[in-house]
Amino acid sequence: MTVLARLPAEQNAPQKKRGRSKLLPYLLLLPGGLWLLIFFAVPALQLAATSLYDPSGSLEQGYAMTWAFGNYADALSQYWPHFVRSLVYAGIATLLCLLLGYPLAYAIAQKATRFKNLMLVCVIAPFFTSFLVRTLAWKTILSDNGWVVGVLRDLHILGADGRLLATPAAVVLGLTYNFLPFMVLPLYASLDRLDGRLLEASNDLYASPIRTFAKVTLPLSMPGVVAGTLLTFIPAAGDYINAELLGTPKEYMIGNVIDSAFLVRLDYPQAAALSFLLMAAILAIVFVYVRRAGTDEVL
């Protein structure tokens, strides 16, 4: 009788263990989920509500919820050039980061043996300095009396009165420099996983280096390309520091307009509407890009 009484308890033990193992992933996700809920979802909902406030209100008198969807149309009609400028600047900077970052990531992953760790440290070294300080450094580098402008004038690429600072080129260069590591690191992670035997097999089949790159290396590194372009384009489109320090109001991006609406003009409904329009535009571009890229693996 004692043995028979123990059997049900012993049979239920594996079921309890399986139940706990099923709950474990959800328990591990709970801290991150709560963090996103408290610090992202709730503020996003509050921002969405702010974008529908009565635009005739003020900070002193308060705002009334009037479901003013016209705030979106008004914001877009007034500041659509800034949206276009932001997307264009971010797109050019992302392309430059890809052209500069891919060879660098390939060299680190496939060619650098003993110096791989050192080169990776050099890639992330700018993160040891404030984003603001790095941008201010570029303001000095691109100044009218700097060596860069001097060399370009000597080569007659720039005229005698030509300049780089306070131009669209300066803003794009600043974006490219500041977000280049975000491109290099995903590319390196993808290229470092390449099986060298595939490249050797391509050479054994008499494929040229260009054909090997086009048919083997690039397709296998596409997850890194997709991840790098997303990590570069998304923050670059919303950036405002580079346009503020390296450009003029003619080069201002939508981030500068949002910053001014929130902190200078105190027009919270318009600022919130602009923020949501920027978020919607980026989400639409990312969705189309990922679908066109033909890969769901971005890490």
Rank of each mutant, 00 (worst) to 15 (best):
L187N: 04
F83S: 00
W35T: 09
P168D: 08
V290K: 09
L194G: 05
G91M: 10
V84T: 14
A112E: 04
R291P: 09
Q46T: 13
V290I: 14
S51P: 00
Y26D: 03
T50V: 12
P223Y: 08
L194F: 03
Y26S: 06
V171T: 06
A243H: 07
Q110Y: 07
L76R: 03
P219A: 09
K139S: 09
G32F: 08
D259A: 13
P25D: 02
A227S: 15
V257R: 02
P223T: 08
T248C: 10
L37A: 14
T140E: 12
L180M: 12
I124P: 00
Q78P: 07
R134P: 05
D259L: 11
A273W: 03
L185C: 09
P219F: 07
A284L: 15
A280E: 06
A112M: 13
S77G: 12
R163C: 00
A166G: 12
V148H: 05
S208R: 12
E10G: 12
T94K: 04
I210D: 11
F182M: 08
K16L: 15
T217E: 09
Y89N: 08
S77H: 09
E244M: 11
S190G: 07
A75K: 05
A293G: 07
R6C: 14
K250S: 15
A170L: 05
D296K: 14
M253K: 03
L263Y: 14
V151N: 13
G146Q: 03
A273T: 00
L194P: 00
L34H: 06
K139M: 15
R265T: 13
V151D: 13
K16V: 13
A227I: 10
P8D: 11
L95W: 06
A125E: 02
Y89S: 10
G224I: 02
N242F: 05
A271H: 00
G70H: 05
T229D: 06
L52P: 01
L230H: 06
V84C: 11
L158S: 03
M222Q: 12
A207T: 05
Y72I: 00
W35C: 10
P103L: 00
P8I: 07
F179Q: 01
A243Q: 06
Y206G: 11
L87P: 00
L99D: 06
L29K: 10
A137N: 01
Q270M: 11
T167N: 02
I92S: 07
A9I: 12
R85V: 03
A201H: 09
G101Y: 01
Y53E: 02
P219V: 05
L136C: 07
N117I: 09
P269D: 10
A227K: 06
L191S: 01
T135R: 08
L246W: 06
F276D: 11
